[in-house]
Simulated assay, not measured.
Amino acid sequence: MLGLQQVHHIAIIATNYAQSKSFYCDILGFTLTSEVYRETRDSWKGDLALNGQYVIELFSFPFPPPRPSRPEACGLRHLAFSVADIDQAVAHLESHHVPCEAIRVDPLTGKRFTFFTDPDGLPLELYEA
């Protein structure tokens, strides 16, 4: 048996590291736990935690290629975050000028969800727990 225990982290490449770091930390509420500039790669790497748990590795690289399409390109479709109150979460995002799609209901679970994007247009989801 392979013995997987949990997802360790998610890696995201940003076109503007400072803007994305501000988005994930100041708007979404992640905490920057470590940060390093890798001179040989002209790249920043920040480790972000959510509620004390390391979750996202945020990178910058010079001139990364764009994502092929949203969200049905082959590969990772989106990153989803659970929230207790989706209306409150949407209001918070919109107060920071982050537009959200209309809230929908999952026909299988009856739970409410919506999508929004990070500064690079990466699809993110809020899913009411």
Rank of each mutant, 00 (worst) to 15 (best):
W44T: 05
A49S: 15
D42C: 01
Y37W: 14
S82I: 13
S43K: 08
E125A: 05
A84K: 13
H96I: 10
S82P: 00
P68D: 02
V83A: 01
A102Y: 04
K45P: 00
V55R: 05
D47Q: 15
A49E: 10
S95I: 09
R70T: 11
P99K: 13
L79M: 12
P119N: 06
F81P: 07
P71M: 05
D87C: 02
W44C: 07
N51V: 00
A89L: 01
V55G: 02
H78R: 06
S60E: 08
Q53R: 15
V55A: 14
H92K: 13
L48H: 08
K45N: 14
F81M: 13
S95V: 09
P99A: 13
E57S: 13
F63K: 14
L93W: 03
F59N: 12
A91R: 15
C74E: 13
R70F: 11
L76G: 02
F61C: 01
P119I: 04
T117S: 12
P64G: 08
T109H: 04
Y127E: 07
R104D: 12
L58N: 02
P119Q: 06
N51F: 14
L122A: 10
T109A: 09
G75F: 08
S82A: 14
S95T: 12
F63E: 14
A84E: 15
F115A: 03
N51W: 11
A91C: 10
I103N: 07
T40S: 15
V98R: 00
V98D: 01
E57V: 12
K111L: 07
R38P: 00
R38L: 15
P99V: 12
G46V: 09
E94K: 06
F116W: 07
H78K: 07
E94F: 08
P68I: 03
V83G: 01
Q53S: 13
E39Q: 14
K111T: 00
E57W: 03
V90L: 11
K45A: 05
V98E: 02
L58V: 05
P71G: 05
L58D: 02
E128P: 02
A89S: 15
R67H: 09
I103H: 08
T117Y: 08
G46F: 03
R67E: 10
E128K: 02
V83Q: 01
P64N: 04
L108G: 12
E128L: 02
P62H: 10
A102I: 09
G121F: 07
Q88A: 15
V105S: 06
P71R: 06
T109D: 05
Q88G: 07
T40D: 14
